[in-house]
Design a protein around this nucleic acid. Structure first.
Lengths: 215, 215
DNA sequence: ATAATTTGTTAGACTTGTCTAACAAATATA
DNA sequence: TATATTTGTTAGACAAGTCTAACAAATTAT
């Protein structure tokens, strides 16, 4: 039986592997809020089960088996988020933490029913793609708002941070998913960004621009 | 933090306490599928936390605090069952096992939303009362179909077994919640029961009649 | 009332997932 | 390059929740 901890490690390793930096022990430690030696012993166990590959002092990568399991959990997480928003009436900034719990429900029927009710959805409420039953993800070609040239107009299609704090901030400044964003100006020093959304000009910090995915 | 195991022990002790026989170690052991010494050590821990009262070789009873916690879990279980049936389209025979998992979700918001969507429901799909936010249960005065005199007609309002096997059986023989049941005859030897439901006469075993609650 | 059976208890071991303390390797800095 | 810092590893401890083996109390049957 797959344990809660195991699912969380696989998911975290998967998510870290998506960044260029890759999944290192210290990053996992920070992400999972667990001390370094714990990471070490857990990753050793996952390696014994052939879920991750791992050489001392190098980072971790998921085996095919590990990746499949990670994607199953991610599928459940994202389906749940969409269900919570669409069917239960939650706001997009409220659903992440609840989905972190619900994703560990074992019953496949429960999630198949969500999938049915939502008619095989492709994206969660934060614009992240929902893996299909076989773990396939649509190829997306997203860019960071932080890297778009001045003068261009892009469409805001996803966030890379689903925390309530960040999403509430976006709502407060009037930026919502699928808005068109025009880059007016960027401060070279710190990446401070002047943008126009719905004819209104606002300023975003570089950090925020790093979390907004556009196409 | 309340653990999964703790919640399951409290719920099981609560449920067993509802029977005349009370909650004994061996009954708990059977119900939770756990060996007797495990029950012993766990109940000791629950007693340390003042959730159950317990004297050696006597049964267990919940303290007020323990009962409150048990009823919280039962509330979540029954709300979930109704949500699964009413909102997600599951059959009443499919929901018990899923609810056993969902009931342990911590987020209070999740269940408040269910409660809202279902408009403060009073009964789950098996006719069991849903405790309110304060743990209050409506006083019900139910009888076992097994104990009704011959000739009477009663209304089927709840089952005491929500297993898929039992509920599927009831569906198969054409008995559904809120049917009117007339007692035609009862075999003294084994309680075999002849009943009339929707103008059709059927025969139920004594065991089944013990699991049907009527008023 | 004694023996047999059932039920409950104690002792001690094991697994999972976590920790702290001490040390080692790799990387960055002077 | 030598040293300091950061990152990773090993060893060993601990809590939660489970088990088996051995024994004790309570209950039932003879």
């Amino acid at each position: 039986m797959r344990t809660l901890a195991e699912e969380n490690y696989l998911k975290a390793i998967y998510n870290l592997s998506q960044n260029e930096t890759g999944a290192t022990a210290s990053k996992l430690s920070e992400k999972l809020n667990v001390k370094l030696p714990t990471i070490n012993s857990m990753v050793n166990k996952l390696a014994d089960k052939e879920l991750v590959e791992y050489q001392k002092y190098k980072g971790f990568i998921l085996t095919e088996k590990g990746q499949k399991q990670a994607l199953e959990v991610i599928r459940k997480h994202r389906l749940t988020e969409l269900f919570l928003v669409k069917i239960m009436g939650f706001g997009w900034e409220e659903v992440h933490d609840i989905a972190e719990e619900v994703e560990h429900i074992k019953s496949p029927l429960f999630f198949e029913k969500m999938d049915l009710i939502l008619s095989n959805p492709k994206y969660d409420p934060h614009g992240a793609p929902i893996p299909d039953k076989n773990g396939k993800l649509p190829k997306t070609n997203l860019k960071l708002l932080a890297n778009i040239e001045i003068g261009k107009t892009v469409r805001f299609v996803a966030v890379s941070d689903s925390s309530s704090d960040f999403l509430s901030y976006l709502s407060r400044v009037g930026i919502s998913l699928y808005s068109n964003i025009e880059i007016i100006d960027r401060e070279v020093f710190d990446g401070l960004l002047k943008i126009k959304v719905n004819k209104i000009t606002t300023t975003l910090s570089g950090q925020v621009a790093e979390k907004i995915l556009v196409e």
